[in-house]
């Protein structure tokens, strides 16, 4: 366990630039959304677009179902990249592999930190929207934000796991990014084909609630109980992909 802290530190140093940049940009969208609502609300929420509070619909359009979610997904993918394949390119794999730490531990720590970063990013809008809305004398339901954070975390973990596996499989650092982006866009098309089209498999929709039974599109609010089974399945798939990446790393030669 003594080796966990230094490995976490290493993983943090390798990814902190990406994480902080993603967090800063996500924060900028949230802050801009609240304080720039006078100009942006008319554009993003035309009259009668939503029933109920226009501010709720506006935040959904800009943050939970809009550009902020897109940025979050891309940041989640980018956070997954790196690892021993990239270290091989940077000629540090020899030093890392000579450390008395198993490859499973190396992979596990990187995944653990990445998922922690995704949890932090998914909670960021909750934190910022709460504070900024308070300062701007508007309100967005806390429960909604917490539930969206949960959806974002599970969806972000799934995309993270795909990027993680791609980074394990592919030697070129940019090829892994390209493949992850391809997956992010192609996958919703792929699930339109039978037999996949019978199940709610579109992670983008799961995250935003779009076309999901737990989301009311008229009010832009999540309704009913959170989709626990769906969230658990997504986390299980993410876990399985990370375990697969660890197994591949375990048996790979790093010459």
């Amino acid at each position: 366990m003594k080796t966990l802290a230094p490995l976490l530190f290493k993983a943090w140093r390798e990814s902190r630039g990406r994480f902080l940049l993603g967090a800063a940009l996500l924060a900028a969208i949230c802050v801009l959304a609240v304080f720039g609502r006078a100009s942006l609300m008319k554009v993003f929420v035309p009259d009668e677009a939503f029933v109920g509070s226009p501010y709720v619909g506006y935040i959904y359009q800009l943050v939970y179902g809009g550009p902020a979610r897109g940025l979050f997904v891309i940041t989640a993918i980018v956070l997954a990249l790196g690892g021993l394949q990239r270290e091989r390119l940077h000629r540090t794999a020899g030093f890392t592999l000579a450390l008395p730490a198993s490859r499973a531990l190396l992979v596990g720590v990187q995944a653990l930190l990445g998922l922690g970063q995704i949890a932090a990013l998914s909670a960021l809008p909750l934190l910022l929207l709460t504070v900024c809305s308070l300062l701007a004398h508007v309100s967005y339901p806390l429960g909604q934000m917490a539930r969206f954070s949960l959806l974002w975390f599970a969806g972000g973990a799934a995309f993270f796991a795909v990027g993680f596996l791609a980074a394990t499989l592919l030697r070129s650092e940019y090829a892994a990014l390209a493949v992850s982006f391809v997956f992010m866009i192609c996958y919703p098309i792929a699930v339109l084909f039978p037999p996949l089209n019978r199940y709610p498999l579109n992670v983008h929709h799961i995250m935003s609630g779009l076309a999901m039974p737990y989301f009311d599109a008229h009010t832009a609010l999540l309704v009913g109980a959170p989709p626990w089974a769906l969230l658990a399945s997504m986390l299980a798939v993410a876990g399985a992909l990370i375990v697969l990446a660890a197994q591949i790393t375990k048996y790979r030669d790093y010459s």
Partner: peptide, 24 residues
């Protein structure tokens, strides 16, 4: 092991790398 290309983590300072390695 001291590798051929002396590949060490360039993003860490000397002190950080020593602290990092020491922990193992």
């Amino acid at each position: 092991y001291v590798g051929e290309d002396k590949g060490l983590y360039g993003y860490m300072t000397v002190a950080e790398l020593i602290r990092f390695t020491r922990a193992f």
